[in-house]
Design a protein around this nucleic acid. Structure first.
Length: 211
DNA sequence: TATACGATCACCT
DNA sequence: GGTGATCGTATAC
C-alpha cells in the first residue's frame, strides 16, 4: 500500500485555455473527432497533473452504428453516452481496462468519441509508475494503457470535460486534413469497414495498425 | 440464476 | 502470428 497522500486537491481556478462547452456541440461526431486531434488531455489525480496531446480517436455514432454501445438503446452501463455533449463516458473492458470517451451529441442520442492514444507531455514518471512497466513508448498508446497512465477509472464516468476539476481538455495544436489519416476502427466486429478512426499521420504514438 | 462476451493488452511461439 | 487474463453487463433461460 502507498503511504496516505493528504495533499489538497488542486484548487486553482480553471485554466482559461480549457475548451468550453460549445466546442463539444459539433454537428457531426466525426467533426468533433477530427478536432480532438491535437487537443491536450489533462487529468489531476491525487494532486498530480498528467497530460498529453491526443493523436488517435474513433467516432461511435449512436443508434445507427452497430459497434456503438448505444446502438441497442440505453442501459445501466451506457447511460452516460446519452447525456449531453462534453460528458465523460468511461467503461470497463475485458474486466481489466478502462476506455474513455467524449460524448458528442445532445441528450438522448448516444454518440461519442473514444480517445485511443496521446503523446505524453506532463507527468511522464507518474504514468510509467501507474503502468508498472518502464517502457515509455507504450505509456499512452491504446485506450486501456492511456487510462491507466492518466489514472482514469470508472469514477470519472459522468464528469464534464468543460467543468471537471480532474479531467479536461485544452487547445494545443491543430491539424489540417492532409495531416490526418482515416481508417476502420480497431477491435470491433460490426461496422469495422467504416472510416471512423482518425489519427495523426506518421505519429509514433498511435496504437494498432489497420489499413 | 446462468452464461457468453467484449471499442484490450501482455506475453508467447 | 496466436491466446489467456478477468469481470461487469446484457441477455437468455
Amino acid at each position: 500500500m502507498k503511504p496516505m497522500n493528504r495533499s489538497l486537491p488542486d484548487s486553482s481556478p480553471l485554466p482559461s485555455s480549457r475548451l468550453p462547452p460549445v466546442f463539444f456541440r459539433q454537428v457531426e461526431t466525426e467533426s468533433l473527432a477530427r478536432k480532438l486531434l491535437g487537443v491536450r488531455l489533462v487529468t489531476v489525480v491525487r494532486g498530480v497533473r498528467t497530460s498529453g496531446e491526443i493523436v488517435e480517436v474513433e467516432a461511435y455514432l449512436g443508434r445507427n452504428d452497430p459497434a456503438c454501445h448505444a446502438s441497442r438503446g440505453k442501459t445501466g452501463r451506457n447511460a452516460m453516452m446519452f447525456e449531453a455533449a462534453g460528458h465523460c463516458y468511461v467503461y470497463l473492458i475485458y474486466g481489466i481496462y478502462h476506455c474513455v470517451n467524449v460524448v458528442s451529441d445532445p441528450e438522448g442520442v448516444g454518440s461519442g468519441v473514444l480517445i485511443r492514444a496521446v503523446t505524453p507531455m506532463e507527468g511522464i514518471e507518474t504514468m510509467r509508475r501507474r503502468r508498472g512497466r518502464a517502457d515509455m513508448s507504450d505509456v499512452a498508446r491504446g485506450p486501456g494503457r492511456l487510462c491507466q497512465s492518466f489514472g482514469i477509472t470508472a469514477s470519472f464516468c459522468g464528469e464534464h470535460f468543460a467543468t471537471s476539476q480532474r479531467i479536461w481538455l485544452e487547445p494545443f495544436t491543430t491539424y489540417s486534413r492532409e495531416q490526418i489519416a482515416i481508417s476502420g476502427r480497431i477491435g470491433i466486429s460490426a461496422g469495422q469497414e467504416l472510416p471512423l478512426r482518425f489519427f495523426v499521420k506518421h505519429s509514433p504514438w498511435v496504437s494498432g495498425t489497420r489499413r
